[in-house]
Computed example of a mutant assay.
Amino acid sequence: MSKEGNFLIYCIERYKSAKGLTGRQVSELFTKYRVWDYIYSCFEALHTTGEKYIVEDIDLYIEARQSAMV
C-alpha cells in the first residue's frame, strides 16, 4: 500500500477513536463531505502534524463543507 493509503487509514482510525464512531460512520461521513480527497490532496502537509491537529483539521474541513452544502 502507498504511504498516502496508509495515512488515510491512520486518519480514519484516529478520527474514529476521537469521535467515538464506527468505521462505517467515519466512511460515510468522509464520503459525504469528500474528506478522502482532502486528506489525499493535503497529505504532504498533514502527515507531518500530530493526531490532535489532524482530527481538528478534519472537523474544520467538514464544517466548511456543511456550510457550503446548505
Rank of each mutant, 00 (worst) to 15 (best):
F7C: 00
D59T: 05
K52M: 10
R14M: 07
L29I: 07
S27C: 14
M69D: 11
S27I: 14
I54C: 01
E13M: 07
L8H: 00
C11D: 02
S27K: 15
I9D: 06
R34E: 06
G20K: 07
E4Q: 14
G20L: 08
I9C: 06
G50I: 09
V35R: 07
L60Y: 13
Y53T: 12
M1R: 05
T49S: 15
V26G: 04
F7L: 00
R14F: 02
T22W: 08
H47G: 04
T31K: 13
E28D: 14
E56F: 11
T49P: 09
Y40L: 14
L46P: 00
F43T: 02
D37E: 14
Y10K: 03
L21T: 03
C11F: 00
E63T: 03
C42K: 05
A45I: 11
Y38D: 04
G50E: 14
G50M: 09
I12W: 01
R14N: 03
A68F: 15
Y61M: 05
E51W: 03
K32G: 02
Q25W: 02
Y15T: 03
K32P: 02
T31I: 10
S41K: 11
E63H: 11
V35P: 10
E28G: 08
I9P: 02
Y15C: 03
M1D: 05
I58L: 05
Q66N: 13
Y61F: 15
